[in-house]
């Protein structure tokens, strides 16, 4: 692509010159997200403390249930249940089950206009930046939480490098899926302006159906079917099942495939909603 009519002295970069260059903005935005989160380690530690307390309560309750059920409860052995609890607590700082986002605020106060003034895909930039923040949060919140669980309770650990790798991929997909879904909550603001109602609904529903409180295999059938027909189990339950080895072999690969499917669907809906919403955008404030 060449820019005509512009003297050479002020020729502008012609835009991306290949796939690597095309991805460079998003990589930088991702790194910026990581760095932003890195400045809030102290705040993250507060979250870790709360996580740990709830984790101890949860594991006491659920391990007692496993013991009284004779060693296996809802398909979980004691080490698997411990893994469920502590991995879940660790992922809570990274998988977005609250539904708040910087973008929702930007839609409400009109600063989102600035996002549209950049030569990037607004959805991709918003998602990538938030994933950067949440991947970083694994370090101060996720890792310590898992270590505490391993030390105090004992956990099932991935048996082999391939399982570990698949587990890591599954965690990354779970985080990204949650962020891409919360993006939809923010984008609903193009129509609603104030997204607090939607966000509250997301918060109530997502944690429950994602399996934050109890593993979804403990749900009655009808509720299990309902959960499976939403993207929420793929955010938290699937990664936990893959990492803990409760679901193994090709079934684990199947779960990761399902995560990819959900992610694709949610991203497509987000892309369509962004395009439609942009035409409605009235940009609040002067």
């Amino acid at each position: 692509m060449s820019v005509t009519g512009v003297p050479a002295s002020r020729a502008r970069p012609p835009g991306p010159s290949g796939p690597v260059e095309a991805l460079r903005p998003y990589w930088r935005i991702f790194v910026a997200g990581v760095r932003e989160q890195a400045r809030y380690v102290a705040a993250t530690l507060g979250g870790l403390l709360a996580n740990t307390v709830f984790g101890l309560l949860k594991s006491a309750l659920l391990l007692a249930a496993v013991a009284s059920a004779g060693g296996s409860f809802g398909g979980y052995t004691a080490p698997q249940m411990a893994t469920y609890v502590w991995l879940g607590q660790g992922l809570l700082g990274s998988v977005d089950l609250f539904g708040r986002s910087a973008l929702a605020g930007r839609v409400k106060d009109g600063s989102v206009a600035l996002d549209f003034l950049r030569p990037v895909d607004v959805q991709a930039a918003a998602v990538v930046s938030e994933v950067g923040r949440r991947v970083f949060a694994l370090l101060p919140r996720g890792v310590p939480s898992v270590l505490i669980g391993a030390v105090f309770v004992g956990m099932a650990v991935p048996a082999s490098p391939p399982v570990l790798l698949l587990g890591a991929l599954s965690i990354l997909l779970g985080i990204t899926l949650s962020v891409a879904t919360v993006y939809l909550v923010a984008v609903s603001g193009f129509w609603l302006v104030d997204t607090r109602g939607v966000q509250t609904f997301y918060m109530v529903v997502s944690g429950f159906l994602a399996g934050l409180f109890v593993p979804i295999t403990l749900f009655p059938d009808w509720l299990l079917v309902l959960a499976w027909s939403t993207p929420f189990p793929a955010m938290l339950m699937f990664p936990i099942d893959v990492v803990s080895g409760r679901v193994g072999g090709w079934s684990a690969v199947g779960l990761v495939g399902a995560q990819l499917g959900w992610l694709t669907l949610v991203l497509v809906v987000g892309q369509v909603a962004t395009r439609a919403g942009r035409r409605r955008l009235e940009v609040q404030g002067g």
Partner: peptide, 14 residues
Amino acid sequence: RESFRILAAIHHLG
């Protein structure tokens, strides 16, 4: 400085 770096990437400056 970071803002300038990010914007430079966004605009594909060499």
